[in-house]
Design a binder for these strands. Structure first.
Length: 424
RNA sequence: GGAGAGAUGGCCGAGUGGUCGAAGGCGCACGCCUGGAAAGUGUGUAAGCUCCAAAAGGGCUUCAUGGGUUCGAAUCCCAUUCUCUCCGCCA
């Protein structure tokens, strides 16, 4: 959520920046300012009214204690009118606040000035790339054939147990998952991220804090009986650890990593991109989250990007890093780098990480603030996160890129975690 | 799931209708003391909104959350959530 301060102080700049995300903010920004004016006007009236009531109540108390009962009783009568009025005003005030918030929550985060213009994936800008695309042998297959051939991931069995998009990992397939999780967590913790095991379900407040609610609730699985949401990413519980917290500036940066399964309904996405491991309803991911001082968040973003890049290098995967254009960015992000790996069996680039700076957008929603040493005023912190990394597409590309007529070669760094060198 | 007790500031804890944004302690910050530190001692120490060009200073709200009673609520009533104890069940 943008701050009212930014909206009020640099209205034209805000509208201009929103246009980079292909969001026409002219109308809603004007509306927000008008609603805020209205809210303030009502508050002044209401506060004055309440102040008068308070002072009368105090006087009455004094009169009673002095035994002036008659005077006290006549003072009582004056308040009934005030009470009536303040009831109306406070209703108006809550309505105004609600409406303001409703509008405010609909405005996406401002993209950073370095965000390229564009509408979709074709307009993303490649920052750099690494690794080399392998030449596969005759008869090389996409991973959904390989998993069947070696009996390591069973998609049909998942359909029997739950439904499409809930695969069952078996034998070396299951072990490979475990190896990747451990590899990622080890790499992240040695880079200074504290390991966290969060709940896999969150309440409404948490969903709101990171921006999944109120708009994207149809993308999350909802446990109706208890009103919990299955997390779509560890970002949600991990970032919300610091909801409603006032940090000390000296505590920055806060670095956390968590492995969790992620649950996504993926409503409305069908077709060729969803085969095999490419898009699932439940998948494993290791996430990194940082909470940082506003002055340092972009430095931190670069640090996170090179950390993720390093993971891909170690896994010997061909990758490219894209700076997302305005049209392809998420609602909450100010700057996002996507990491894609080339999966040679299906001859496709697959997104395996999205690393973003949210600046104060999430922190403002969840009241995540900090104080500068010796300062009385609180400021809003910056939050960042990235996948390090999402498993299924990494698995897909490892299987496809490393296939040989003799079997699938496990990348060297994973071998000690797997306990085997080949899937055959 | 049943029965009972409770929820107060960064933490502990007092407070059963007005003088309470809240005693006292701990913690923290600054000062004094000290060669330096500890101890001791003094002062200060919530957040949000709002008025004011800003500072200073005011106003409003907040004692789990939401409602109610009252001129006036941390305090009384109702609902919800959560925590603890006992019983039951159980990885």
């Amino acid at each position: 959520m943008l701050t009212l301060k930014v909206i009020r102080e640099s209205k034209d700049e805000v509208i201009k920046r929103l246009a980079v995300k292909n969001f026409d903010g002219k109308e809603i920004i004007e509306k927000v300012i008008a609603l805020d004016d209205q809210r303030k006007a009502i508050q002044i009236e209401l506060d004055n009214n309440l102040a008068e009531q308070n002072s009368i109540a105090k006087q009455i108390g004094k009169l009673f204690s002095e035994g002036k009962t008659d005077e006290a009783n006549s003072a009582k009568q004056r308040t009934s009118e005030l009470k009536e009025l303040s009831k109306v005003l406070s209703q108006k005030f809550t309505d105004a606040e609600k409406e303001l918030n409703k509008a405010l929550v609909k405005i996406p985060n401002l993209p950073h000035t370095s965000v390229p213009l564009g509408h979709g994936a074709n307009d993303n800008v490649e920052v750099r790339s690494g690794g080399s695309i392998p030449k596969l042998h005759e008869g090389a297959q996409p991973h959904w054939e390989l998993t069947k051939k070696y009996d390591i991931i069973d998609f049909e069995l998942g359909v029997k147990l739950t439904g499409a998009g809930f695969p069952v990992y078996k034998g070396k397939g299951a072990k490979l998952q475990r190896a990747l999780i451990n590899f990622f967590l080890d790499e992240n913790t040695s880079a200074g991220y504290q390991e966290i095991q969060p709940p896999l379900m969150v309440n409404e407040d948490s969903g709101y804090g990171t921006g999944q609610l109120p708009d994207k609730d149809s993308q999350m699985y909802h446990v109706g009986l208890d009103n919990f949401y299955l997390i779509p990413t560890a970002e949600v519980p991990v970032t919300n650890i610091y909801r409603d917290v006032v940090l000390n500036a000296s505590q920055f940066p806060i670095k956390m990593t968590a492995y969790t399964p992620c649950f996504r309904r993926e409503a409305g996405s069908y077709g060729k991109d969803v085969r095999g491991l490419n898009r699932l309803h439940q998948f494993d991911k290791v996430e990194i989250v940082q909470i940082q001082h506003p002055d340092k968040s972009y430095e931190t973003l670069e640090e996170m990007v090179s950390h993720v890049e390093n993971l891909l290098k170690k896994l010997e995967l061909p990758y490219r890093i894209l700076r997302l254009c305005g049209g392809d960015m998420s609602f909450t992000s100010a700057l996002t780098y996507d990491f894609e790996v080339y999966s040679a069996g299906q001859e496709k680039w697959l997104e395996v990480s999205s690393t973003s700076n949210f600046e104060s957008f999430q922190a403002n929603r969840m009241m995540l603030r900090f104080k500068e040493e010796g300062d009385k005023k609180t400021q809003i912190a910056h939050t960042l996160n990235g996948s390090a990394l999402a498993l299924p597409r990494i698995v897909a590309s490892i299987l496809e890129n490393n296939q040989t007529p003799e079997g699938i070669r496990i990348p060297k760094v994973l071998q000690k975690f797997c306990g085997f060198e080949m899937i055959d």
